[in-house]
Amino acid sequence: MRRENTADVLKEKKLILVLDLDNTLLHSVEDGSLSSEDEYLIQLREFVEDDRDRSVFRWSGMVTKLRPRVRAFLKQASAMYDMYVYTMGSREYASQMTEFLDPEGVYFKNKVLSREDCTAPNQKGLDVVLGEERAVVIIDDSRTVWRRHTRNQIEIKAYHFFGPKRPILDFDGNPLSDTEELESKHSALDNALGYLKRIHWLFFRGARYHDNSDGDVRRVLLRIADEMQQE
């Protein structure tokens, strides 16, 4: 099934992308841990954002902030990749976060994985993804949970909104800190998208991969790493 599904995905000129949730696409904390300043930041967001741009959500004793530009990232990545979500959170948490990110079920549909799907303690694994490892790219802020698949991973800088490293906004909801201003204008997700485009192009380029039978994203990622070291 993994081989057949990989072949179907490759025929559409797509690869498979596995995305972490916490600190990669969003930041969640317990509602009770919020300071008065955190509450102020949430109120500012709720005031300046309409339903279409909504980025802060409260649910079941938690509060979640989506990473800046995450919706644009998902839209562009979906044109090149068949996407999964994989979190060490519970299945209920994964389902709710996915609904915040993809309320119309355009990107993930039933491709949502949680800690209940893990086949090794405290480790995520591609054995539960319906695709061959040679066609799978992972984006996660942690390498420790992907020890079996480090060659498939792009490590992204962790995103934090609440707590001591949170951004400070003015009364109009504009970021005052350099960190959040940079994140809003050029998110780490933009950098990741650049890698994804490069990987996709290298994998499918030229006659060598006309049937995709010998393509392997792990070789592509290694080549990109070598190119970066030479720059």
Rank of each mutant, 00 (worst) to 15 (best):
V18W: 06
H27V: 13
P121K: 06
L113E: 03
D211F: 00
Q230L: 01
H160P: 00
S177N: 04
Q96E: 14
V56Y: 06
D53N: 11
D31H: 12
E155N: 08
L17M: 14
R91M: 13
N152S: 08
V85H: 07
L189T: 08
R3P: 03
E37G: 12
V129A: 01
K75W: 15
S28E: 09
L189E: 04
S213F: 00
S142C: 15
R69D: 02
K109C: 10
P68H: 12
W146E: 13
M80K: 10
Y159R: 05
R71E: 14
E116G: 13
M80H: 06
A192F: 06
N122M: 13
A77K: 14
D50M: 08
N152I: 02
Q153P: 03
T119M: 15
G32V: 05
A192W: 05
S78H: 13
N174G: 02
A79E: 13
D226L: 01
R54Q: 06
K14A: 13
L21P: 10
F57D: 01
K14G: 10
M80P: 14
E49V: 07
T119P: 04
M62H: 11
L15M: 06
E133T: 08
T98M: 06
I168H: 05
L10F: 02
G125P: 11
F108Q: 14
N152K: 11
R71D: 09
R205A: 02
R147L: 13
Y209T: 03
D53F: 10
P167Y: 00
D172M: 15
I154A: 09
D38H: 04
Q43R: 10
F162D: 02
K185Q: 01
E227L: 00
L176F: 09
A225E: 00
E181P: 00
K65G: 09
S33K: 12
A158F: 02
R134C: 05
A158E: 12
T119I: 10
V56G: 02
G206M: 01
N122L: 11
R151F: 03
D102C: 14
F204D: 00
K185V: 00
Q230E: 00
G61T: 05
D102P: 13
R198D: 09
I138W: 04
S184D: 01
L189R: 01
K75M: 11
P68V: 02
S95T: 12
R143H: 07
S36F: 10
G206P: 01
R147M: 11
K197Q: 15
L10G: 06
I16C: 05
P68Y: 07
T119G: 14
I139H: 15
V137F: 14
T144E: 12
A225I: 00
R67F: 12
L222I: 00
K109R: 11
R208W: 01
R3M: 04
D22I: 02
N23Q: 13
L74I: 10
V85G: 07
R218P: 00
L17E: 14
R2L: 08
R2M: 08
M62V: 10
D53A: 09
S95M: 09
